[in-house]
C-alpha cells in the first residue's frame, strides 16, 4: 500500500510479512486441486499407484490426454470425449449469442423505451435468476416434447437461452439505465427507429457489459450438467455429461490419469475464457455510466 503514509517500523514490517505469507499459503492451498489434477494427468498409471499424490512425474507422458480425447470409454462407446467437447461448443456458442442478444434488447427496451409496468416486468424477470433448475425439469421436458425438440441440440439451446435471459437482461438493464435518455431522444429526433438506435448508438458502447454477459453465460452453460443429462440424446450430450460417464465407466482398470486429463479438457475452455477476458469482466461489472 504505497498510498498509505506510515512509518516503517520493524514491527510493522514483520506484520506485513506475516500477512503476505498467509495470503500466499491460502493461494497455494486453493491451487492444490488443480496441481494434483495436472500432475496426475501426465503420470503413467504405475507411478500413480506407487507414488504420492503430490510427487512430480518421473516419466511425464501425454498419453492419458490422448486417450481421454479419442479412446476412453464413456458408457458403451469408446471414442473419448473429443466428440462431446465439440458438442458442447455447438450448444454453448448459439445459446450464449442468442441469450446475450435477447438480454441486450430487453435491457434496452426496459430502460430507454419505458412503458407502463416496465419496472414490474423487470422485477418479475429477476425472479428467473432464482428459480432452481430442478423445478423446471419436468415441465421443460414436456414442453420440449411438444415442440418436437426432445433430445436435440436445438432443444438444449432453447433451455439454456430461456434460463439465461433473466441474467443477461439484468446485466444489460443495469448497464443501459446509466445511459442518458437524451442520447436516445436525440437519435429519435434524427429519425432512427428502435432497432437502428440499438444497433448504431447503444451496442457500440456496450463492450464492457457484452464481455460480462458472454463470460457469465459461457461458464454457466458450459458447466451445466443437469440440463445436459436430462434433455440431451446420445449424440448431443455435452462434455460434462460425457465426463461423468467416462469417470463412472466400471469396466477394466480405473485409469485415474485419463479421468484427470478428461476433467482438464472439460474445464479448459472456461479457464481460457477467464484468462483472456477476466480483467474485462471485472471492469464491466464495475462500469457505470457512459461518458459522452
Amino acid at each position: 500500500m504505497a498510498n498509505v503514509i506510515r512509518r516503517q517500523t520493524p514491527l510493522a514490517r514483520l506484520g506485513r510479512m506475516a500477512l503476505y505469507a498467509t495470503l500466499i499459503l491460502a493461494a497455494l492451498f486453493y491451487l492444490l486441486p488443480l496441481v494434483v489434477m495436472l500432475l496426475t494427468s501426465i503420470k503413467p498409471l504405475e507411478e500413480i499407484r506407487a507414488g504420492s499424490l503430490l510427487a512430480l512425474p518421473l516419466a511425464p507422458t501425454l498419453e492419458p490426454w490422448a486417450k481421454a480425447w479419442g479412446e476412453a470409454c464413456t458408457g458403451m462407446r469408446c471414442e473419448g470425449i473429443g466428440g462431446y467437447f465439440w458438442n458442447s461448443f455447438a450448444i454453448v456458442i448459439p445459446a450464449v449469442l442468442i441469450s446475450t442478444l435477447i438480454g441486450a434488447l430487453n435491457g434496452y427496451a426496459l430502460t430507454q423505451w419505458r412503458f407502463k409496468g416496465s419496472e414490474l416486468l423487470f422485477a418479475l424477470m429477476l425472479f428467473g435468476c432464482f428459480i432452481p433448475f430442478q423445478v423446471v425439469l419436468l415441465p421443460m421436458a414436456q414442453t420440449l416434447g411438444w415442440l418436437g425438440l426432445a433430445s436435440s441440440r436445438a432443444g438444449l439451446i432453447l433451455v439454456h437461452v430461456v434460463f439465461g435471459i433473466a441474467f443477461t437482461t439484468l446485466f444489460f438493464r443495469n448497464f443501459y439505465v446509466a445511459v442518458p435518455r437524451e442520447l436516445v431522444a436525440a437519435a429519435k429526433l434524427d429519425g432512427a427507429g428502435f432497432f437502428r438506435i440499438f444497433w448504431r448508438i447503444l451496442l457500440p458502447v456496450s463492450a464492457p457489459i457484452l464481455v460480462v454477459s458472454v463470460i457469465w453465460q459461457f461458464t454457466q452453460i458450459w458447466n451445466d450438467f443437469l440440463f445436459g443429462v436430462a434433455f440431451s440424446g446420445h449424440d448431443t450430450q455435452p462434455v460434462t455429461v460425457a465426463l461423468n460417464n467416462l469417470v463412472n465407466t466400471s469396466t477394466g482398470v480405473k485409469e485415474y490419469n485419463v479421468d484427470m486429463a478428461a476433467a482438464m479438457i472439460a474445464a479448459l475452455p472456461t479457464l481460457v475464457v477467464y484468462v483472456l477476458a477476466g480483467k474485462y469482466f471485472v471492469r464491466g461489472l464495475t462500469a457505470g455510466s457512459v461518458k459522452g
Binding site: 442518458p180 437524451e182 442520447l183 436525440a186 429519435k188 429526433l189 434524427d190 457500440p204 458502447v205 459522452g292
Partner: peptide, 29 residues
C-alpha cells in the same frame, strides 16, 4: 413521431453519440 415533425433539438447534456466521430454525429440525421 419526433422524426416526422421536422425539428432538431440541442440538449443540455449535448447527447452526442459516443461511438461516432464528430463527422458521423453531424451526418447521422
Amino acid at each position: 413521431t419526433p422524426a416526422e415533425r421536422d425539428i432538431a433539438m440541442v440538449f443540455q447534456s449535448y447527447a452526442l453519440y459516443p461511438s461516432m466521430t464528430v463527422r458521423q454525429n453531424i451526418a447521422f440525421g
